[in-house]
Design a binder for these strands. Structure first.
Length: 501
RNA sequence: GGCCCCAUCGUCUAGCGGUCAGGACACCGGCCUCUCACGCCGGUAACACGGGUUCAAGUCCCGUUGGGGUCACCA
């Protein structure tokens, strides 16, 4: 017996944020490492806030991250592959209402739950009275219907009959023993008056009927766990194991939100992050494996374990995230990077075939200074696009009248070099510098600005080879022309001249 | 306020009674160098506080303080 079954149960009320993604990831990792199953269930019982659009975004996010589910809602990916389905469906809670009704009835018959006819107004009145009394204890609604029956057809909710003595606890996979006094528990509502289950009941019925063996979720659910365990007991069923994960915090230690960073998983896709990098960063945020920082997906599956999941809330660190991205980017073959950066190039108006050797070669030279696909596209842009604007600082500092002759001389050398390749170009330039008593830096920066429009780029000779002789000659000439033209707008000073303008 | 959770460099963390408290990001130097990176070398930087237990405590226990979660016909 004992197939390990994990689940991720998002409520489709927004996008999938980093915290949710990490929860999903840990569940997925454990399922994969144990050869178990990973199931996704959509908790859409909040009809006010749940949307189909949100469901789609959440599933798309998970698919992008590579967190494929064995059972769950159906999802057709771009590649035509279909995820989802399974024997424990439906996987949308709103399609399982009949099941909840059945289980509620079972609890009522067993005397573990009861129909409560108290109205919202009555409850609100009690709450106010409680607050007015100045009592220090938290408010707990004591239903008058706990031990009496009413007419089943009158509007009512179904409440759990929680024990008033003793304690309920469990051995948490990340936090160890947790016990809670039962007298602090409420007779929580299981089914609303419209028959839709509330969180605690839906979760228990679904986890039970879906055969979930370990529930890993955010630690804001610690408070719900005793209630759920009690529900399993009331049903005479065994509760799953639990693992409660701490939250992801913003840099200021507060709950992570939009004002700290992009929090939607898909935002990172848009910014050119790689799924493996996101997965690595998220995995490592709150979990560790000795001194190792960079993990492939396979290593994560192999090495993940609950005993090394931390108990502290982890702060989001954008710089470290970027660093991890960069590491993963550099692990990729150039051809793959080329393929993945295609959309980002297009976004910049650059049309180039992903198999173009010039693109692949260019990537080889820029990838040490890029962390994301978007940065790759940016760093490679000027190889495929005419320079329409020089970086202001570079233009002002290096494209000056006194540098113009250098650019022209360099142009002649390039034109005259026997074979147009890095070694020969370097030899020619070095000989010239030697003869004229010039330093490399006198020439290199003006040339760089002329060739790339920027002050930072790969090595000069590499840039030239990538550009090709004709283009180099053209850009050098344009650069020299611009250099002879004084910077026009001294007031704004920020505008750089365009070549030939 | 009740209940619950948490506490090592600025940040993520290693540590599971005996360590010069280690690594990574960030930061600061240096090397490399045509710029920016990458890479390499080096540096600054932490056990919240107070009591115990023990020959020995970052590690175990208690308390304090400080964070956080939760107290819905939301999830």
């Amino acid at each position: 017996m004992g197939e390990v079954r994990l689940r991720f149960a998002p409520s489709p009320t927004g996008y999938l944020h980093l915290g949710g993604a990490r929860t999903a990831l840990y569940n997925w990792l454990w399922a994969r490492s144990q050869g178990g199953k990973f199931v996704v269930r959509v908790e859409d019982t909040d009809q006010e806030r749940s949307t189909a659009e949100s469901t789609r975004v959440v599933l798309e996010s998970m698919h992008w991250l590579g967190l494929d589910w064995d059972e769950g809602p159906e999802y057709r990916a771009d590649d035509g592959r279909t995820l989802g389905g399974g024997d424990c469906g439906p996987y949308y809670q709103m399609e399982r209402l009949g099941i909840y009704a059945q289980y509620a009835e079972r609890l009522i018959r067993a005397g573990q739950a009861y129909r409560c006819y108290a109205t919202k107004e009555e409850i609100a009145a009690e709450r106010e009275a409680h607050q007015a009394s100045g009592s220090k204890a938290g408010f707990r609604f004591e239903s008058p219907w706990r031990d009496k029956h009413g007419e089943p057809d009158r509007p009512h909710v179904v409440r759990m009959k929680a024990p008033r003595e003793g304690k309920t606890g469990w051995l948490d996979r990340v936090r160890g023993r947790i016990d809670v006094p039962n007298e602090t528990l409420q007779d929580v509502i299981l089914l609303r008056s419209d028959g839709v289950p509330l969180y605690n009941f839906g979760v228990v019925v679904d986890d039970l009927t879906m055969g979930i063996t370990l529930v890993a979720r955010g630690d804001d659910h610690i408070v719900n766990t005793p209630i759920q365990i009690l529900l399993y007991e009331a049903l005479g069923e065994a509760a799953p194991e639990y693992a409660h994960l701490s939250m992801i915090l913003g840099p200021d230690g507060q709950k992570l939100s939009k004002r700290h960073a992009a929090v939607g998983v898909l935002d990172y896709r848009e910014h050119g992050y790689l799924p493996d990098g996101v997965v690595n960063y998220l995995a490592r945020l709150g979990w560790s494996h000795g001194d190792q920082e960079i993990f492939t997906r396979g290593e994560l599956i192999e090495k993940f374990s609950w005993d090394h999941v931390g108990k502290t809330g982890a702060r989001y660190d954008a710089k470290k995230f970027l660093h991890v991205q960069g590491q993963h980017l550099r692990m990729l073959p150039n051809a793959d990077i080329a393929m993945h950066s295609k959309p980002f190039l297009e976004g910049k108006g650059v049309q180039v075939d992903a198999n173009d050797v010039r693109l692949v070669d260019a990537i080889e030279h820029v990838k040490t200074r890029a962390c994301t696909l978007d940065e790759i596209a940016n760093d490679v842009e000027y190889f495929f696009k005419e320079i329409t604007e020089y970086e202001a600082k570079g233009r002002r500092k290096f494209l000056t009248p006194e540098r113009a002759p250098y650019l022209e001389k360099l142009s002649q050398l390039v034109d005259g070099v026997a074979s147009f390749e890095a070694g020969a170009l370097e030899a020619a330039v070095l000989a010239w510098l030697e003869a004229d008593g010039l330093a490399m830096k006198d020439v290199a920066q003006p040339a760089r600005v002329a060739l790339t429009g920027r002050t930072r780029s790969p090595g000069l000779y590499d840039v030239m080879v990538l550009l090709g002789k004709d283009e180099v000659l053209k850009r050098l000439k344009d650069g020299a022309d611009v250099a002879r033209t004084p910077v026009e707008d001294a007031v704004s000073g920020a505008d750089a001249g365009a070549p030939g303008a």
